[in-house]
């Protein structure tokens, strides 16, 4: 474990709970893409199947349980409890256009052709594009609530910190996983224009609005 990965995991945890609290407190999921949340739930479920078979540490197992539980809870709040506030008119990204190609790629490009490894690879590839429905929804509505932009900033930062973690681990532990690094780069690049807007606008107390 290194500081980049620890701060990255905490940033990820923060993002998930900022969103969960926003929905719970405001009793509304306006401006939030339910499709992205479904994809994130799929990412965690397919990635943490080894939760009971491969014990790494208490921290690792605890975080896996928290990530799965909190993301499933978010999907529940969005599609069941506060369904009336779900903005389905703007959350129209066709996620099958993500899941199918990512599923195919996981079969073709992976470290080992075993079910667990292919599912892990699928999860890594899917996570890199899972935010697209959310970014697409913001581009359609033209703006995002400030709390939603904080959520996105923390979520985008987590994988950027993981890139630093992989640089650290490469030099100090000789650890390198090309699939995770490439997908992590794609994932972080997708946030670049959002990061620019966040830093130039939200940091100065303005609302995040995309140029019309």
């Amino acid at each position: 474990m290194n500081i980049f990965r620890l701060v990255g995991d905490l940033s990820h945890l923060l993002a998930i709970f900022v969103l969960l609290l926003k929905i719970w407190k405001s009793r509304s999921c306006a401006g939030v893409s339910g499709k992205s949340q479904i994809l994130f739930a799929l990412v965690f479920i397919t990635r943490y199947l080894d939760l009971f078979t491969n014990f790494i540490s208490v921290y690792n197992s605890l975080m896996k349980v928290i990530f799965i539980a909190s993301t499933v809870a978010t999907v529940y709040l969005m599609y069941i409890k506060f369904k009336a506030t779900y903005d389905s008119n703007h959350d129209t990204f066709r996620i099958e256009f993500l899941v199918v190609p990512v599923g195919g790629l996981a079969f073709l490009v992976n470290h080992d052709f075993t079910p667990l490894e292919i599912l892990w690879t699928f999860s890594i590839y899917l996570e890199s594009v899972a935010i697209l429905p959310q970014l697409f929804m913001i581009s359609k509505t033209g703006e995002a609530e400030t709390i939603t932009s904080h959520y996105l900033f923390a979520l985008g930062s987590y994988r950027a910190l993981y890139l630093l973690n992989w640089i650290y681990r490469y030099y100090f532990e000789g650890y390198f996983d090309l699939i995770a690094v490439v997908a992590g780069c794609v994932q972080t690049i997708l946030y670049c224009d959002f990061f620019y807007l966040y830093i130039t606008k939200v940091m100065w107390g303005k609302k995040l609005s995309l140029p019309a």
Binding site: R5, H12, N54, I56, K64, F67, W120
Partner: peptide, 10 residues
């Protein structure tokens, strides 16, 4: 190439 490292990252 099968890498034997356990998946220790989240």
């Amino acid at each position: 190439d099968k890498d034997t490292k356990a998946k220790d990252e989240l």
